[in-house]
């Protein structure tokens, strides 16, 4: 059933005879071919590859269970990583171990040695716990500072 006024319906049907200018369709095809040539010349290698890839992926229908399988794999791998005892040591302990190892590797260096210099290079004292958060401790000047030192504060 058509609820439209018959006269309006007839005028609308007449509109199907409206046509573009003469030779439009042949010119349209030539224009299409020209645009396609320009487009293919402008495409970089990467664009061509990505275009081919997107065309390929459009054809591949990924079933819903594939997403579930990937999710399950990710869960298993992350559980295995978290459950591994070798990865459970505290980060502070491992930093302390690294620092101690570094000091041991320096030949002839001792925290108790009498250094001849007036000022020694600051050395970090490692600690078993919280070493990563505590401020470094320094070995200060060997000789006492005079009391009349104008710059003391």
């Amino acid at each position: 059933m058509n609820d439209l006024d018959p006269e309006i319906a007839k005028l609308l049907r007449l509109k199907r005879y409206e046509q573009p200018p003469e030779n439009y369709y042949e010119d349209f095809l030539l224009e299409f071919q020209r645009r396609q040539r320009v487009r293919s010349m402008r495409l970089s290698l990467w664009e061509k590859i990505s275009l081919r890839f997107s065309e390929l992926t459009e054809q591949i229908r990924i079933p819903a269970y594939a997403y579930a399988a990937v999710g399950a794999c990710a869960l298993v791998v992350s559980t295995w990583i978290l459950a591994d005892p070798s990865t459970q040591a505290s980060p502070g302990a491992s930093i302390a171990a690294t620092a101690q190892k570094t000091i041991k590797q320096k030949p002839g260096f001792s925290l108790t040695s009498d250094a001849p210099s007036a000022f020694q290079t600051p050395v970090t004292i490692p600690s078993q716990r919280f070493v990563g958060t505590l401020p470094p401790q320094y070995l200060l000047h060997n000789s006492p500072v005079p009391e009349n030192d104008p710059f003391r504060f």
Binding site: R13, L14, K15, Y17, E18, Q19
Partner: peptide
Amino acid sequence: DVDSAIENDPDF
């Protein structure tokens, strides 16, 4: 512009 073309159409 296009409508003028239909004036020659038999239905019109």
